[in-house]
Simulated scan of single mutants.
Amino acid sequence: MQRICVIGGSRYFGKLLVERLQSAGHQVTVINRGSSRPPEGIEHLVADRDDETALLAALGSRTFDVVVDQVCYTPVQAAIAARVFAGRAHRYVMTSTIEVYDPATAALPAVSPGTPVPEMSVDPATWRVALDLPWHDEAYLGAHYAEGKRQAEAVLTRAGGFAFASVRSAHVLGGGAEEFTGRLAHYTERIRRGEEITVHEKALPSVFIHYAELADLLLWAAADSSFTGPLNACSDGLLDVRDLAAAVADQVGREPVYRVVTEGATASPFSFDRHYAMSNTRAKSMHFAFSRTSDWLPGAVAEALTASAVHPA
């Protein structure tokens, strides 16, 4: 049994992670702002992670073997966490994102077109940090999500008060009504109603992961592994927007209607005009076994269709 603190953990794969940590016999503490209570038997601390004084007060004298940070989006939040948990946690795992590799948001090292990128394509130890940017502004943060994650990783990498690891998640699908982003529902609803799906002329593939598989990997990263540094998390197999639409069409019984957008225009979720698939070789070298996207995608689509039937748009 380990003492594990989860910051966030109130919805989607974070909620599932908390449940699986508890089922595995760990002593779990959840910190959030009180909008959602964790399951019975899990300690719940109510605090705003952006308020350092309140966070310290809520924690009291508690210490942890591992902290799993599900909701760290900015270097300012990371700096607060680094100060608060230095000497209070042996290991700190941050949930990060494939977006750190998005070539549309940063100048990254060149790789061959179509090559899945390894973790060190974005090295947090060398990434520039700017704490004085308006990270508190929601509009700014929304427009700089990927950079916020890059800089948050950089701050925690350099903190030195604990062993640090980041899990860079691929695009997450599955979970039916739990999938709060609505990206898969966009396809199920539009194809079911015969509405257009907007796509790029040369839509390129990316990588994905099922929400339960991501919860499993975070459980492994927190409780059963000691790696440090960034780790890519994605199922095997590339998927592009037309593959996704075809998987929906197979179950809806209706062909997708596409409209091609001009270069640079906004398209449907997961229609990409740039390639930034990740390599999961590092996790595999540590014996984490990934599923294939093609194996779980039909089930994820079926869950989304069921959820939309119960809660129609």
Rank of each mutant, 00 (worst) to 15 (best):
R3L: 05
R3I: 07
I7S: 01
Y12I: 01
E19N: 06
S23P: 00
I31R: 10
I31Q: 05
I31M: 11
R33S: 06
G41M: 07
G41C: 05
L45W: 02
A47T: 07
D48H: 04
D48A: 08
D51I: 05
A57I: 02
A58P: 13
F64C: 00
V66Q: 06
V66W: 11
V67H: 12
C72P: 04
C72T: 14
V76C: 07
V76H: 03
Q77D: 02
A78L: 09
A79G: 02
A79T: 03
I80Y: 03
A81T: 03
A86M: 13
G87E: 13
G87P: 10
H90C: 13
M94A: 13
T95M: 15
I98E: 10
I98D: 09
Y101D: 11
P109W: 06
P109M: 03
A110I: 13
A110K: 11
V111G: 04
P116L: 00
P116I: 01
V117C: 10
M120F: 12
P124I: 05
A125E: 11
R128N: 06
D132A: 12
H136I: 04
D137L: 08
E138G: 13
A139C: 09
G142S: 01
A146M: 00
E147H: 04
E147I: 04
G148S: 08
K149L: 05
Q151C: 07
E153C: 06
V155E: 02
T157V: 10
R158T: 03
G161S: 10
F164L: 04
S169M: 04
V172A: 07
L173P: 00
G174Q: 04
E178H: 15
L184G: 01
A185I: 01
H186W: 07
I191N: 00
R193G: 00
V199A: 15
K202P: 00
K202D: 13
K202L: 07
K202I: 11
F208W: 09
I209M: 10
A212D: 14
D216Y: 01
L218I: 02
A221P: 05
A222Y: 12
A223K: 05
T228F: 03
N232C: 09
N232H: 14
S235R: 06
D243M: 13
L244N: 08
A245N: 05
A246D: 12
A247T: 00
D250V: 15
Q251C: 03
G253S: 08
R254N: 07
E255L: 14
V257Q: 11
V257L: 05
V260N: 14
T262Y: 11
G264L: 01
T266M: 11
D273P: 03
A277I: 03
H287E: 12
A289L: 12
A289K: 09
A289F: 09
F290R: 08
R292Y: 10
L297Y: 08
L297V: 01
L297T: 09
A300T: 00
V301K: 06
E303N: 00
L305F: 08
T306I: 13
H311G: 00
P312C: 11
P312Y: 08
